[in-house]
């Protein structure tokens, strides 16, 4: 029972830490870091479901009775990783410009500035 779902639980713990970091931290870079953690946890979730006991990587080799793990989740997560880094790049570019425009990357300070303007 414990090992049956161990991988999934680790996924959930990472997920919660990531989500909490995004929501509770007011530093914009810390938010991006939390977002990355949050996305990584979902990658693990997908890859876990493709795993097969005693399996090997889905690269065909000429041997009888080889069990291959499922390639489809791998394909999906390759795409998701790319999407993740694209989002990170865009987010960080915005952070750089926010720093220049507001001279801070603290969400609360920015909110104060926006209100007073």
């Amino acid at each position: 029972m414990f090992f049956d779902h161990f991988y999934y639980w680790i996924t959930v713990i990472l997920f919660v830490i990531g989500l909490y970091t995004v929501m509770s931290r007011s530093n914009l870079i810390k938010k991006m870091i939390g977002l990355s953690l949050f996305q990584i946890s979902v990658f693990l979730f997908y890859i876990t479901m493709g795993k097969i006991e005693g399996g090997t990587a889905p690269i065909i080799i000429d041997q009888p009775d080889v069990v291959y793990s499922n390639p489809l989740p791998h394909v999906l997560i390759l795409t998701a990783i790319v999407v993740g880094v694209a989002t990170t790049a865009l987010g960080l570019a915005l952070v750089v410009r926010i720093k220049e425009a507001f001279d801070t990357i603290d969400e609360e300070e920015i909110l104060q500035m926006e209100e007073t303007k």
């Binding site: 989500l19 914009l28 949050f38 998701a80 989002t87 865009l90 987010g91 915005l94 926010i98 425009a101």
Partner: peptide
């Protein structure tokens, strides 16, 4: 800039939720 960043954070959380749902 802050509007776009806020949307990026919220939007990515939304998209990741959809990804989990699909998974």
């Amino acid at each position: 800039l802050t509007a776009a960043f806020q949307y990026l954070i919220v939007g990515t959380i939304g998209a990741t939720f959809i990804l989990i749902g699909v998974g």
